[in-house]
């Protein structure tokens, strides 16, 4: 534990308070906006506040990460600091896993219990008395109250776009690993190529996902409001898509840093963290593909 000697305690920093102000402004704006939309108020300053909050957050992200990159590149971080970052990133990813677990849990609960009960099966089949005659099936193409929640006319087949998307994401998990291996051998050119390819695969995934959503909304009537199938479908794929977007953005930043000559064969935790995150969104997708699309 000799690395204790170089422990780095940063001096005062303005970034945490900027981040707090940015976050508060953003969520205040978005909440005001949502409420005004729901109450159908003609004017709302929510979007503007939200936009200002977003700008503050963007400024903070550039500044804070910029500061960390600068410190890292001037060699201030010891191996111990590196381990702190590793623990930090690992537990952050674990927290993300639990966030998705909440939505997967909701899906399993509906499919295993609540749905069949509503259809009259099992211990709590009396729930069927709420909407007598309601028959449960999954995917749910007939909602208990079709007036409130009009059901979709069809669902997305697993073996079209979702299969292509699976192939794209799994491939991108390999390409980012190839990039990592190239970095470890200090082969900068293949590093750039593999990393760029990973970003492109991520973007391709997102484009296809948007296409799938357009198809679902326009042709199938599969929307957020089309009952529990649509709710779970869009919640899970939507949050996953948001994470792919974030992951692709992080990888793009890494690509820019690689281009500027950052990272060497031994010190490149920023890159590694980005690739951990990418593998994580990939694994979540496998879960989605199996439980949302196939089964």
């Amino acid at each position: 534990m000799s690395s204790h000697e170089n422990y780095y305690v940063p001096a005062q920093s303005k970034w945490p308070i900027v981040a707090t102000i940015g976050m508060l402004t953003t969520v205040y704006g978005v909440a005001t906006w949502f409420n005004d939309l729901k109450a159908e108020r003609a004017e709302s300053n929510g979007p503007l506040i939200f936009f200002i909050g977003g700008l503050i957050l963007a400024y903070m992200l550039f500044g804070w990460f910029g500061a960390v990159i600068k410190e890292s590149r001037s060699g201030l971080y010891s191996p111990q600091m590196d381990r702190s970052f590793r623990w930090g990133m690992s537990w952050f990813i674990f927290s993300e896993v639990m966030f998705f677990a909440a939505f997967f849990g909701a899906l399993f609960y509906i499919r295993m219990w609540a749905g069949p009960w509503l259809g009259g099966e099992g211990d709590k089949g009396v729930a069927n008395m709420l909407w007598p005659g309601f028959e449960y099936s999954w995917p749910l193409l007939n909602n208990p109250d079709p007036k409130l929640f009009p059901a979709p006319s069809g669902v997305i087949s697993a073996w079209g776009l979702p299969l292509i998307n699976t192939i794209l994401l799994v491939t991108s998990s390999f390409t980012v690993t190839f990039a990592h291996h190239a970095l470890k051998k200090n082969n900068r050119k293949p590093l750039k190529i593999w990393l760029a390819l990973t970003v492109l695969l991520g973007i391709a995934f997102l484009i296809l996902q948007v296409e799938e959503y357009v198809h679902a909304y326009n042709e199938l009537g599969l929307t957020l409001g089309s009952g529990i199938y649509g709710a779970t479908f869009f919640m899970l794929t939507g949050f996953h898509g948001a994470h792919v977007t974030l992951g692709a953005l992080i990888l793009t930043v890494m690509l820019v840093r690689v281009w500027r000559g950052h990272f060497d064969a031994d010190q490149h935790f920023g890159f590694e963290a980005a690739s951990w995150y990418w593998h994580f969104v990939d694994v979540v997708w496998i879960g989605l593909f199996v439980f949302v699309y196939v089964l």
């Binding site: 939505f103 609540a114 909407w131 709710a231």
Partner: peptide
């Protein structure tokens, strides 16, 4: 996760917690 589902139910018409749409 649970407050996000609430947010969606309130503002985006999902039915996580509404049996009328198959939720619970």
């Amino acid at each position: 996760g649970v407050v996000t589902m609430m947010l969606m139910d309130i503002h985006f018409g999902t039915s996580f917690f509404s049996a009328a749409g198959g939720g619970d």
